[in-house]
């Protein structure tokens, strides 16, 4: 691992605890017995073949998908059918999607301040100042008055990252944030994510960008057929994978 400042080191508190979680789509058992604990400031990269349930798993963490068995506890709140709990968890958990999902009818600035104003009840002026700060951080402050449709894919994804940062989340989930991007834009998004990691943001990243995993992750997980098959620190994970399926997957992807 690279040198990181102290703030970036994981500490003892669990932000996410998943215990023996199962999920079905109809009869199809997509996730079976997921156990996962994420500490504050931890960076976790999840990889695995297509259809293995990576998206489904991280989408369960903010209840975009409902799990049917087991427990998911986020920042001390257990996810149940209680809508108030769900909204509380969602406000604490940021999410960055493969296809950005910016709101096309709102300006970049409005995209960023929507959550803070309506969910966090922050005064508009203050929300805009915070938004501007994060836009500068992702290097697109000059685009604040434009609409998403007027930006490139890489710029849109950086706006999406800034949008989730504006909610001051405890953890951010990334679902293949660079796989809809042209190669030359991937780096600009990864750079922003690396900056975030260095500042100590807790991150759960589904990605196949192994360079990112190697330089940033505290733990790398391999998922297959709805289970976490193997997890390790990046060094051992890549150099010395234990399971056959991991070895096969890595040989295909590297």
């Amino acid at each position: 691992m690279n040198e990181k400042n102290i703030a970036a080191k994981p500490d003892g508190r669990y932000i996410i605890e998943i215990r023996d979680m199962h999920k079905w789509y109809g009869d199809f058992h997509v996730l079976s017995g997921i156990n996962l604990q994420v500490k504050e400031r931890e960076k976790i990269v999840i990889c695995g073949p297509s259809g293995s349930g990576k998206s489904t798993m991280i989408r369960c963490i903010n209840r975009l998908e409902e799990h049917q068995k087991g427990q998911i506890i986020v920042n001390g709140t257990e996810l149940s059918t209680d809508i108030k709990n769900i909204e509380k968890v969602r406000a604490e958990v940021g999410m960055v999607f493969q296809h950005f999902n910016l709101f096309p009818h709102l300006t970049i600035m409005e995209n960023l301040t929507l959550g803070p104003i309506w969910v966090r009840k922050i005064p508009k002026k203050q929300a805009e100042e915070t938004a501007m700060m994060y836009l500068e951080k992702v290097h697109i402050a000059e685009q604040a008055r434009k609409f998403p449709g007027q930006l490139s894919g890489g710029q849109q994804q950086r706006v999406a990252i800034a949008r989730s940062l504006c909610m001051q989340p405890k953890v951010i989930l990334f679902d293949e944030p660079t796989s809809a991007l042209d190669p030359e834009m991937i780096k600009e998004v990864l750079d922003v994510m690396i900056d975030l990691a260095d500042e100590g943001m807790t991150m759960l990243v589904v990605t196949h960008e192994m360079s990112f995993a190697k330089s940033v992750a505290d733990r790398v997980m391999f998922m297959d057929a709805g289970q976490i098959v193997e997890e390790n620190n990046p060094h051992d994970f890549f150099d010395n994978p234990q399971h056959e399926r991991t070895q096969l997957f890595l040989s295909q992807i590297l």
Binding site: I83, R90, V93, G94, H99, N101, G115, W118, V119, S164
Partner: peptide, 24 residues
């Protein structure tokens, strides 16, 4: 994706409809 983005910000049903879905 529009519903999911609104949900993941923690907007409730009314806010999601009024601010995100209906305008579009």
């Amino acid at each position: 994706g529009q519903y999911e983005a609104a949900d993941s910000l923690g907007l409730n049903y009314g806010q999601t409809m009024r601010l995100v879905i209906l305008p579009q």
